[in-house]
Amino acid sequence: MRPRASVLVGFAIIAVYAAAALLGPLLSPYGEAEVVGDVWEPFSAAHPLGTDNLGRDMLSRLLWGASRTIGVALAATLLAFGIGMTLGYLAAVVGGWVDMILSRGIDTLMAIPTLIFALVVLAVLPPSVVILILVIAVLDSTRVFRLARAVAMDVVVMDFVEVARLRGERLGWIVFREVLPNTLPPLIAEFGLRFCFAFLFLSSLSFLGLGIQPPAADWGGMVRDNANAISFGLPIPLIPAAAIAILTIGVNLVVDWQLERSSGARRGVRP
C-alpha cells in the first residue's frame, strides 16, 4: 500500500518536532529563563514569536520546552505501554484468578476521574519529573491494559495458541511469539493516540500548575502563563497551544494510516 500525502505530512510534522526536541537548546537564540525584553512584545526580527509575560523570548522557550514536553510524554507513554501490555497479556493468556484480580484492580483505578487522581497524588508527592512520568504512565496504563487484554483475548482462543500450549511451550513463548505479533498493529495505532493524550494531559497538569515547574519551560505551562494576553487581543498563548495541536494532528495522521494498514494485514495480506 502506498502511503497517502496526509501520512507524509504527518511524518514531516513529527520529524520537525523530533528535531526541535533534540536540537532545541542548541538552536534557541536565547536562554530558557533569560529575560530579554519587555512583556508581550510583538513579533520582530529579534524575537520572531514575540516575548512572554515576563519578557522572555517565546521562540527560545518553545524550543527549550519541546524536549521536556515531548520527552515526558514519550517516556510516560512508553512506560504506560510497558505496564499495560505486560499485565494485559498476562491477564488474557493466564486467565482465571490472575485475570480477575488484575481486571478488577484496573477497573477500580479507572473509576476515579483521571485528573482528580493525578491532582491528589501530585499535590501529596514532591513535584519532580520522575513522579510526573510515573503518575501519567500508571493512569494511562489502565487504558492500554484494557486494549491489550481485549485484543489478546481474541488471539488466545485461536487454535494456533492451543497448538503452542499442547506442544508444551512456556508462557514467554506464547505471549511474545504467538500473541504479541498478532496484536501489535492495533497497539501501535493506540500508542500514537495515547502519546497525544499523555501530551495533552501533561499540558493540562502544567496549566493547572502541577506539571513541570517554572522557570522550566513547557508548552502547557506557557499557555497558562500567557493566558491573560488573550484579553488584550494578543495571540501569544495561541503559539504554544498551536505547537501542541499541530503535533497531535501530525501523530494522528500517521496513526490513521497505521490503523488502515493493520486492518489490511488482518485480512490475511502479507505483513
Binding site: 485461536m158 487454535d159 494456533f160 497448538v163 511469539r177 504467538e178 505479533p181 498478532n182 490475511g268 505483513p271
Partner: peptide
C-alpha cells in the same frame, strides 16, 4: 485458517 499463526 486459525490453526496457523498468520505472522509466522
Amino acid at each position: 485458517d486459525v490453526a496457523l499463526n498468520p505472522r509466522q
